[in-house]
């Protein structure tokens, strides 16, 4: 399970301090962790000498092709899984179907195009075989080049099985139809995703900002191009005008 060096390009532009700390360490640790046999142990030894200066570049060199992929290999689910019922009930073509780990065993994840999302979710909720009335979680994920993703975790309390529905949009056109009419639980989750990622949920009944102060709503925190502050970047004395006038 060793990994190529410089595998955190998404962290590098944010944190100038981090690569210097993390780059030598994986390099230093590779030899000791090469003891469990991995196929990449041989390729990692030359990478251990990669200087930290290279890690400070804007986009460090991508690892060689024989390194491990960044995304998990997609395994199709066995026949007669829940995805087929979803496809049948909603009449929607699913772009990708694969399995993801679950509390015990696996569950199915499907990818749909964003315009089909309300139809798929409504079908999951209303269809007899699926009966997925419980929206567990709605989150956004920022895959940088590949766009923004919205992930819905649905669950059926009666049938005890769930499904993960995903949809992907690009940065320029980050509009996803809202499912607040299908699942009232999604209302606040969508408002939060809008605050954090800038995904615009069209048709949302109440699109006010939820978590952010009203004057800071356009700077989406959870996107990867909004890094955390360095410790040295203090907020300065701009807020200090009122403090000095007070008497004890």
């Amino acid at each position: 399970m060793t990994l190529p060096d410089g595998q955190e390009p998404e962290a590098k532009p944010d944190d100038a301090g981090q690569p210097a700390a993390s780059a030598p360490e994986p390099g230093a640790e590779q030899p000791s962790e090469a003891a469990p046999s991995t196929p990449e142990a041989g390729t990692d030894a030359p990478k251990a000498e990669k200087p930290p200066a290279a890690a400070k570049a804007e986009r460090p060199a991508r690892p060689a092709k024989e390194a491990e992929p960044k995304t998990a290999p997609r395994v199709a689910p066995p026949a007669e899984s829940v995805n087929e019922a979803v496809a049948a009930a909603s009449g929607v073509t699913l772009s990708a179907v694969y399995i993801v780990p679950d509390w015990k065993g696996e569950s199915v994840a499907v990818e749909v195009s964003r315009d089909d999302v309300p139809a798929v979710l409504a079908a999951c909720r209303d269809d007899e075989r699926l009966d997925m009335k419980y929206l567990r979680c709605l989150s956004g994920v920022d895959w940088q080049e590949e766009g923004l993703e919205v992930v819905y975790h649905l669950y059926s309390l009666s049938k005890k099985r769930g499904i993960t529905v995903k949809t992907r949009v690009s940065y320029d056109d980050a509009n996803v139809p809202s499912v607040a009419s299908v699942y009232p639980a999604a209302e606040w989750h969508e408002r939060e995703a809008r605050d954090m990622f800038g995904i615009n949920f069209t048709g949302h009944p109440d699109p006010r900002p939820l978590l952010l102060p009203d004057d800071m709503i356009d700077h989406f925190p959870l996107r990867k191009d909004n890094p955390l502050q360095e410790i040295e970047e203090w907020q300065g004395d701009s807020l200090r005008e009122g403090a000095g006038e007070e008497e004890e």
Partner: peptide
Amino acid sequence: RYDRVLQGVDK
């Protein structure tokens, strides 16, 4: 390190 947090109430 989060920019919505006031770094200390003495500000």
